[in-house]
């Protein structure tokens, strides 16, 4: 899985450079986030701009990151959701859980 990870002041921006975030690759995103939490980096933005498809495992990995960040007084926010991906968050009511921004700048500025 291709993830581009950049530190922007206190926030880590993870860009998911994959067309799909699914049961095959979402474990890698989860592990990447766990590594960041171990390093004490608890403010995360995940940019899903390139992701056209997300399944329940992909959503589960994001929920895992959100719960871990929150438990450490941090936050995990999302940006760049394509319409079909956004509809998955709505179907599973997760759009009420995550803070979702149009682009990376808005998401980074919100911290």
């Amino acid at each position: 899985m291709i993830l581009k990870v950049e530190e922007k002041d206190d926030v880590v921006l993870i860009q998911v450079k994959e067309e799909r975030l699914d049961a095959h690759n979402s474990g890698e995103l989860k592990n990447q986030m766990l590594n960041l939490f171990e390093e004490g980096k608890n403010h995360i933005v995940i940019d899903l701009q390139d992701v056209r498809f997300v399944d329940s495992s992909g959503l589960g990995a994001l929920v895992s990151g959100f719960k871990n960040a929150s438990a450490r007084n941090g936050n995990l926010k999302l940006c760049g959701l394509q319409p079909q991906v956004k509809s998955m968050f709505e179907l599973t009511r997760l759009h009420r859980v995550f803070e979702i921004f149009p682009g990376t700048d808005e998401a980074l500025d919100s911290f």
Binding site: S56, G60, T92
Partner: peptide, 19 residues
């Protein structure tokens, strides 16, 4: 059925299929 208020990592797949 998934409990929407409980942030479980798993259990959404079957709900999605039925939906």
């Amino acid at each position: 059925m998934p409990k929407f208020k409980c942030l479980d990592e798993h259990g959404r797949g079957v709900f999605i299929i039925h939906s």
